[in-house]
Amino acid sequence: MALIRTENLSHTYSTGTPFERVAVHDINFTAEKGEYVGIIGATGSGKSTFIQHLNGLLKPTTGNVYYDGTDIHESKKHTHDIRFKVGLVFQYPEYQLFESTVFDDIAFGPKNMGLPEDEIRERVYEAAGFVGLGESFMEKSPFGLSGGEKRRAAIAGVIAMRPEVLILDEPTAGLDPQGQAEIIRNIMSYKATHGATVLLVTHNMEEIARNVNRIVLLNKGNIVMDGTPAHVFSESERLSKLGLAAPKASLIAAKLRTLGLPLEQDIYTLKRLRKNLNELKGESGKLKAENEQHEIMAGQMNRPPVLQQEDVTGQMNRPPVWDANDGGEQHA
């Protein structure tokens, strides 16, 4: 049975005023246990509105939301309990810190769950560990932390409730590449340890390409695509019509394909692209016919110390590097 299921979920803001607006329309969505789903969509497409239904913060104007088979609005108490199972990290969560120490702030959720003191302590330390905040941070004031540290403290505040489903609304927005990679790793390690289901809202396609195993695309409040990254990213034209762009790697691969390189269809990470190109290079002795074109490509792909370095660190989202090298032609 699906862990989370929405049934004809619609939400209208400010009903009955001139500002009335349908933010989410007739969404039927399911997520199985252990899935890692990426939710993408242009600004204002209803992503934040949609995810706030999944832990009962917003009530559907019409339709229902089920968690583990039960309607989450069955009773007030039930909705309240669901919030501990479906942890929601808001956009810019660092603005919601309020306690005098990081420890107390992370402990806020577990305390509300009514857990005993030692269990709270254990969970707080575990959560802080997941996001890489050491002991030394525990007694600091959250307001004295850097932006990235605050963000991680806020995420720990949700993780400390050990939710079975972790939903994050643009958790990496406004951080530097290293901070972004760290947060994504933190989420991965929580997921791996607790077998949690993760829903990640993001505008960063590279990020989503490397991590999730399913992508849901929202447009104007409707789900317009739902499938594997390979499937979704293969339709780069449709994506750009919806105000989004496929990851650089899949755009480059598409371009190379039009130039005659027989690359595989499901390329959307640089790692994969590089591997495929190297495979082709191995065969190139035999494929004399394509020799000329291939030389150009191989030359281009060998140039960058960038690519090799990226392979080592596992960080591939450095758009500026690609922009500089390819001069935006990948957007063609």
Binding site: Q52, K76, F84, Q96, N112
Partner: peptide, 16 residues
């Protein structure tokens, strides 16, 4: 509204 929602997500209860 936003802060309330965020704290509610962590189990804060403003109603009872």
């Amino acid at each position: 509204d936003k802060i309330m929602s965020a704290q509610k997500s962590r189990g804060a209860d403003f109603e009872t």
